[in-house]
Amino acid sequence: MVISKQTRSKIDAVIAKYPQARGALLPALHLVQDEYGHVSKECAVEIAEIFEIRPVEVMEVLTFYNLFFDSPQAKHHVYVCTNLPCSLRGARGLLRQLESQLGIKAPGETSDGRIFLGHEECLGACGYAPMMRVDGQYHEVLDIEKAKRILDSLGE
């Protein structure tokens, strides 16, 4: 078994909330990704067993959504919103500056696998543009200094 006991019991609890077990596939994938940072092939097989479907069907769902990963990812995920309101408030310049700060091209990750930098479409925080999402956390009304400080404060 690859999936931990704790995650497994969380999956079982979610399944109980749906009239058909299959309905809980998305939440289950989230739970597994929360634990490992991605959903490995081995985890997909195990999820398939839990849901009594074929592994290839888990892969269909897993690959359909960009926010699920089937291979190991960088430790920290930084997405800069580049939609219209953020772009009008300098998001693209901000992204370029973060690229040169990290020495990478978005979307891409640092050679030590510590930070992934990408851009994203609207995250619904237009009133506080420009903004970025770091490990699920919103950081708003950014300038380059503030953004750099946030990246520097990220742990190993």
Binding site: K41, A44, P55, V56, E60, T63, Y65, N66
Partner: peptide, 21 residues
């Protein structure tokens, strides 16, 4: 037997098998 599936989405869609199956 269900070996084949559509992976990814939109204009990234491709037919695939589960790795190793």
């Amino acid at each position: 037997t269900g070996e084949l599936a559509v992976f990814n989405r939109g204009d990234y869609s491709v037919i695939e098998t589960f790795p190793g199956t």
